[in-house]
């Protein structure tokens, strides 16, 4: 069966959910092999096997942490040249996309980024993408070389398919370009008890109407009652009320949860591009003319500082 390379996204061996989604998608195309860069492969191997990785290629070299992107490009290119995979899947993010592009250039292959679905066709993988601020759905395929595809989080639900992976250690020869950009310091994203924005099934977001950093507690309380992640509009982030890592929109994170609840967000195109593929959308806004209501499956025209606390109270009451 054709081998599919999947680049693992992890922090010290803790594998992130989008990687499990990639393994799940890779099984539609062939037999997944995980490419693990850095430290912690021992921890990661079990979970990678549980989601169907027949092989785990481990590159435990300090360069991977010390330099930006290019060591991963060297590693993935060399593994691809020697294994001749039928496709290479990576997570969509600045690191994943840049790695993918450079690997594709070196392999003289085609590249598709930000796929929201990948299916198998006779001639290879077919991707689905959401474009023009999520107003169009595009299917495409790579026409040259090994298809290199980056996939957005939540493209599919991770499904286990346990195997015991064969672990192969790789010695990668790093070229001079791999040391081009030095990582001076690294601050891993703060982990909270809430689900991650890209992975959550429910997202509760606040915007300009929240009117202050301290008021985001109202958004957080509802998020916690629903087991949701917290999002913020660009206006709220630019105002310094909530960290940029929570920004939903064209230039922030693009989410597609089961439920998206927008509070005090008008719904500018910038924001809509990041959330309008959500399955159910709920809006709470004082302004009945806010464009967000055009997208909403349910909307409340009212004061979020009254509606949200009442909703939290009602959720708690219903749950007894």
């Amino acid at each position: 069966m054709a081998e599919i390379l999947v680049l693992v996204d992890h922090t010290d061996g803790a594998v992130r959910k989008p990687t499990l989604e990639l393994l799940t998608l890779a099984r539609r195309l062939g037999e997944p092999s995980a490419v693990f860069l850095g430290q912690g492969a021992d921890t990661a191997t079990e979970v990678l096997g549980r989601y169907g990785a027949h092989k785990v290629y481990v590159v435990d070299a300090p360069e991977v942490e010390e330099f930006l992107v290019t060591p991963a490009v060297d590693a993935l290119t060399q593994i691809a040249e020697s294994t001749s995979p039928a496709a290479i899947l990576l997570p969509s993010g600045p690191d994943g996309k840049e790695t993918a592009a450079r690997v594709a250039l070196r392999l003289e292959s085609g590249l598709i980024t930000d796929a929201i679905d990948v299916t198998a066709d006779e001639d290879g993988p077919v991707t689905e993408q959401s474009v023009f601020a999520a107003t169009y759905q595009v299917t495409a395929h790579v026409t040259q070389g090994v298809p290199v595809i980056t996939v957005k989080p939540n493209a599919t639900a991770p499904e286990p398919a346990p195997v015991t992976p064969a672990v192969e250690k790789w010695d990668v020869t790093f070229g001079p370009a791999s040391a081009a950009v030095k990582v001076l310091s690294r601050a891993p994203r703060e982990r909270s008890d809430r689900p991650e924005l890209t992975e959550a099934d429910i997202v509760v977001s606040g915007g300009r109407g929240v009117n202050g950093a301290e008021n985001f507690a109202v958004i957080e309380r509802l998020a916690d009652a629903l087991g949701a992640a917290v999002g913020a509009s660009r206006a709220a982030v630019d105002a310094g009320w909530y960290p940029h890592s929570h920004q939903v929109g064209q230039t922030g994170t693009q989410v597609s949860p089961g439920l998206y609840l927008a509070a005090g967000i008008s719904g500018a195109i910038q924001h809509r591009a990041g959330m309008q593929t959500s399955k159910t959308i709920v809006a709470v806004n004082k302004d009945e003319d806010a464009p967000i209501f055009d997208l909403a499956d349910y909307g409340v025209v009212g004061d979020l500082f009254k509606v949200l606390p009442q909703l939290v109270e009602e959720i708690e009451r219903r749950r007894g």
């Binding site: 930006l68 993010g93 030095k182 990582v183 690294r186 601050a187 890592s245």
Partner: peptide, 13 residues
């Protein structure tokens, strides 16, 4: 300063 996939990094070239 770069917001990467899972960390904020300071980088230099």
């Amino acid at each position: 300063r770069r917001e990467g996939d899972s960390a904020t990094v300071r980088v230099q070239g």
